[in-house]
Amino acid sequence: MTMIVEASAVKPANLKADHLAQDQSTTTTVGEISSPNPRMVCRDINVWYNNNHAIKHVSLDIGKNEVIAMIGPSGCGKSTFLRCLNRMNDTIPAARVEGSITLDGQEIQDKGIDVVPLRARVGMVFQKPNPFPKSIYENIAYGPRIHGLTNSRAELDELVETSLQRAGLWKEVKDRLDAPGTGLSGGQQQRLCIARTLSVSPEVILMDEPCSALDPIATAIIEDLIDELRQQYTIAIVTHSMQQAARVSQRTAYFHLGDLVEVGTTDDIFNQPKHKLTEDYITGRFG
């Protein structure tokens, strides 16, 4: 409980003046929130669940071809923030999102924006593998079909194959594409879900604790995959494992009770955290 009081009361001394200082943030973020080559730009994001202020004045850039990790204790709002990026919070009736989020310079927060193409451009992989109760082939073909991406069965076959190859699953399943997706192992199911996300050619992939339901070997395979995918995609990953954040990400953002406390390169965050809360968390004093 003492840490909670501190979180809103402490104003770190070594504040870096950034261009959002005029906003009435409860906590001002330490570190460089902007990216030289941004894919998504979020400014002053607030999220409420009914009256619960879940995200408070968060501003953050997500750079092209980088993996950004979001860490923090449970309930800190990192998953909620991630769900803002493809407007998945729309599916929760009680949630209300304010602020500006742009994708390639285009605002996505307007009510008039159609979430269908947005979600095709910003894909999402969930905590628990959630393959549809269909065949492996149909799981991948689902997205291209609803978006009308292919014109013939041959094209669709090819798209399914390349998606599975990129997700590193092709060799394991190429002989049983008609088998149900739910029959795969947990790690394979998660790679199937990644392949499903890749099938609609997204620019950004959001991953919400993608390895928390997997064993260490499956986790290692997915982490290698994330590193490969970085060449073509922008990836934002929420994780509970600090080792995972250190292994896969280039930048790390530390959330605490709805505040974005500190952002920086992964090296800096883990080796020389500037904020006391960040330091306490990554040295394992709480969380």
């Binding site: 493809n86 998945m88 599916t91 979430v115 269908v116 193409p117 947005l118 979600r119 095709a120 894909g123 999402m124 969930f126 628990k128 959630n130 393959p131 549809f132 109760p133 689902y142 997205g143 609803i146 978006h147 879900c193 499903r196 996300t197 609609v200």
Partner: peptide
Amino acid sequence: VPQSLRDGSYALGAT
């Protein structure tokens, strides 16, 4: 039907 299936579908841009 688990909410995760709906989420998975919505996240692909399905209406």
